[in-house]
Design a protein around this nucleic acid. Structure first.
Lengths: 238, 238
DNA sequence: GCTTGTGAATATCTTCACAGCC
DNA sequence: GGCTGTGAAGATATTCACAAGC
């Protein structure tokens, strides 16, 4: 079921000998929740650096400020290598660089937005994306009235322009923000154009080939989970 | 950390005798992932019903259409009771009602939106919310130029109007869509006004009292996870 | 014959606790 | 003395596999 994987660990082949200082690899499977926490650590380090507090940080400090535990912080990092000095902690800039490499945000990603409705426009304007190296450089919509307009300096193109744009603009990811009924069709087009990473905001299950990475953000699920918490877990807890 | 809970299961006290047909309770702890999948099942049932296919559904069918497994579907439901008939399956409308009760969306939730920027406006217009019973009935912003305007029939009010509005409009949840720097302050105001459920879109860790339920949607984390997948898990897999 | 509901087995993730190093 | 990195233990979640029931 989609999440087949096989770990495939030939004993003793887990890690190229001597490569222990290269962050961002290590073949063992890394839990999704670990990767998401790494994003949180990364942003915290950015914030601390901006306040020029915390040139030196400890797992305990990261834990206190993010709401996780110190053991968890260390375990999460351990999947990728060894980044700190015992008795001392981690050097902020250095750990930031390592995390950026691990997360793959040490380059800049070039992104296509498909669907320039309310949500699409908000995503085009979202400051958090460029701040972390995600650049929406092209937008697509099927509404002829929107074609040719610009939103936030980004030209809105017809869907037919997608394949050529993927090549000429070197687009690497797509953000899908169209209604649920057209999302599968859009996904197919995006995949056909050669894109292998999709962030989908449409509330529907998309079917994509195995080699395409798909991440869903479903606002209804989020708010329904909150509804569940309020309904059950009485008045307490996260 | 924050997720302290203690299960507190007095043996033999797990479930009030004879209440086995009441959906939506059962005291055992339910995994977050289970609840999120229930939302997905629920929406699938709605879709099938609208197509007037699937008056009768099986765990296998739900699994095939959502991408989970049949065993998982049955296990997820089992946390809350017993909803199907052996050899037959589940009756769509009946299961839908049960899921709605479990998720707490069989009522209508009245919601405050705080922060009417790009994202806030998109959320005000998001069709998926009212479709599932989530009604944004009041909006708040600190920008005086926005006060008094209406977006999608919803009046934008000053932050100072929040406490009174919570009472007079019976607001039960807040959606926070303000910049990271003001999010904590807004959260405090929202909590002070008596709201106990928060859906937070600001990319920062909010500290709230134990009795307040907080759910975060962090777009940067989502796209960074996609970046991670593209960078590592080579060309394959979910 | 087909599908649910569920103990038991497995796999996965988190926490503990401490040796190793600064 | 303090903090990391990590085996081992513990807790949680998923999957298997089958008895029970239509």
């Amino acid at each position: 079921m989609a999440t087949s994987r096989k770990a495939e660990s030939i004993p003793g082949d887990d890690w190229p000998a001597g490569a222990e200082s290269t962050p961002a690899a290590r073949s063992e499977h890394v839990p999704e929740s670990t990767v998401r926490r790494l994003s949180t650590y990364y942003r915290l380090l950015q914030t601390l650096a901006a306040q020029s507090e915390g040139e030196q940080v400890s797992s305990g400090k990261i834990a206190a400020l993010t709401g996780f535990t110190a053991a968890q912080v260390r375990r999460d990092l351990a999947y990728f290598g060894t980044f700190g000095r015992r008795g001392v902690g981690y050097e902020n800039q250095e750990l930031q660089r390592s995390l950026a490499t691990i997360l793959g945000i040490d380059r800049g990603w070039r992104i296509a937005l498909v669907g320039v409705g309310n949500l699409g426009q908000a995503l085009l304007s979202y400051r958090g994306f460029p701040r972390q190296g995600f650049h929406v450089v092209a937008a697509f919509d099927r509404d002829p009235r929107k074609i040719g307009r610009k939103v936030r300096r980004v030209l809105i193109r017809p869907m037919s322009a997608l394949p050529a744009a993927v090549r000429s603009l070197n687009l690497q990811m797509a953000v899908i923000a169209v209604p649920a009924d057209s999302a599968q069709e859009v996904a197919a087009a995006v995949v056909a154009a050669g894109i292998t990473g999709i962030l989908n905001f449409a509330p529907t299950k998309l079917v994509v080939p195995e080699h395409v990475h798909l991440q869903n953000v479903d606002l209804s699920i989020e708010i329904e989970y909150l509804s569940y918490l309020l309904t059950h877990e009485a008045p307490a807890d996260t």
